[in-house]
Amino acid sequence: MQFIESIGATTLNFIRVIGKIVLFIYLFFRFIFKPKFYFRHNLKYFIEIFISSIPIIALTGIFSGMVLALQSYTGFSRFSAESAIPNIVVLTLTRELGPVLTGLMISARVGSAIAAEIATMRVTEQIDALKTLNTNYFNYLVTPRVLSLTLAMPIFVTIVDFIGVAGGYLVSVYRLGFNENMYLINTIDFISFSDYLSGVIKATVFGFIISIISCYNGLYSKKGAFGVGSATTNAVVISSILILIFNYFLTEVFF
């Protein structure tokens, strides 16, 4: 009996949170058209997260590409289908691994920082202070983060695609003895713009998910150091799970 009750409570809670997040997204679209927009502040934030994320983006790309080449070699050499490796690397990266891994890494790197920063501001009354300084606090805190991440993710995933292909190339040519030109030709011949585009669209959606979930958790965190901690954890866990779920459904759409 208790077990069923707890399932009921969890379900209700889940629906309540979904409702609040939908409301939060509605707020975002309402505020973005309200004065003031704080253009310089938005730009500064974009540059900040862009630069600070480049190292982990590069690392994600190079190692994913390298391991993809190595793993597909183990599989495909059994059917003497090694020549498919360049296609496998580039397709898996652009359509699947690029956006998903970038999304998960950025949610850990940027999403957690967003939630912790906003939650700390709430706990230390800085958000109240914003309201007392004639500021549209939503456009000061939430808008730059959501816009920056949503716009940066397609760029990040493009970088991951390129560096990943380079990683695959390095392993294939220098470790597995592929012909350099053949590898490049096979890569370019097989990738179509729609493959790349599907990855970019996924990344954009993931960027929106990460930023909305992280801002939401920060803004509505509980008070105290505990509140900051759980806001950060929730932001990363919820956005990572949503990335995996949305990834499946977006893949269905682009299939």
Binding site: T120, T124, Y140
Partner: peptide, 30 residues
């Protein structure tokens, strides 16, 4: 409420901004 001003009990300074940016926040943000 733009006509009001408030000193919070624990200051509530923006810790990502300098002293000057805090004090002149309404100008800084514009």
């Amino acid at each position: 409420i733009d006509k009001f001003g408030m000193l919070f009990q624990y200051g509530a300074l923006f810790d990502s901004l300098t002293v000057a940016e805090n004090i002149a926040f309404i100008d800084f943000i514009d």
